[in-house]
Simulated assay, not measured.
Amino acid sequence: MPAPHDIAAEAELGALDTVVCDMGGVIIRFDTGVAQQIEDRHGLDTGSLPDAALKSPSGRQAMASEMTHNTGSRP
């Protein structure tokens, strides 16, 4: 039988304790029609909005809670 995990030691190392998977758009709803409007308005290629938003410097700051949703600036 494998040895039990030392949860406290894993926490100190920054181990993940939860993984959330959004199967079928239950948590995050993505409306492709709205995405297309945003892409058109900003001159982006069709289908490029997720990468433009999530991989941009401000997108990374937002995901790391280094900026607020309402102000678009650091908290």
Rank of each mutant, 00 (worst) to 15 (best):
T18F: 10
V26K: 03
P75K: 13
M63N: 12
D22G: 05
D51C: 05
H69W: 02
R60W: 08
E10H: 12
L44R: 01
G72S: 12
G25Q: 06
A52Q: 10
A53V: 11
P2T: 15
K55M: 07
A35E: 01
A11Q: 15
T46Y: 01
A9G: 10
M63D: 10
M63I: 11
H69V: 11
S65L: 12
Q37A: 05
I7Q: 15
G43W: 01
F30L: 09
S58I: 05
S48A: 14
I7C: 09
G33T: 01
D40R: 10
R60G: 05
D17I: 12
V34Q: 07
E12V: 05
V19C: 05
P50H: 05
R74S: 15
E12N: 07
S73M: 14
D51S: 04
M1K: 13
L54H: 03
K55H: 06
T32I: 04
E66R: 05
P4R: 07
S65R: 02
P75T: 09
T71E: 14
M63L: 15
L16P: 04
I27Y: 12
H69A: 07
E10L: 15
A62E: 01
E39G: 12
L49A: 08
G59C: 08
T68P: 01
Q61T: 11
F30M: 05
I27F: 13
D22K: 06
S65E: 07
M67K: 08
V19Y: 10
R41G: 02
H5A: 15
T32H: 06
A35K: 00
P4Q: 10
D51R: 13
Q61F: 11
L16I: 07
D17Y: 14
P4L: 07
T46W: 00
R60T: 09
T32L: 09
V26S: 04
R74D: 15
Q36F: 04
Q36E: 13
S48H: 00
M67V: 12
R41E: 05
I27S: 10
S56M: 04
V34H: 04
G14Q: 06
D17F: 14
T46H: 02
Q37P: 00
Q37K: 12
E66K: 01
I7T: 15
P75F: 07
H5M: 15
L16W: 08
D31V: 01
H42E: 01
S65C: 10
R29W: 09
A15C: 09
H5P: 02
I28L: 12
H5K: 15
I38H: 02
D17L: 10
G47H: 08
P4S: 08
G25H: 05
A62T: 09
M67C: 06
C21R: 11
S73G: 13
G59H: 06
N70D: 14
M23D: 11
E12R: 15
M23E: 11
A8S: 14
T71C: 04
T68E: 11
G47P: 08
R41N: 03
L16G: 07
Q61N: 13
G25E: 03
T18R: 07
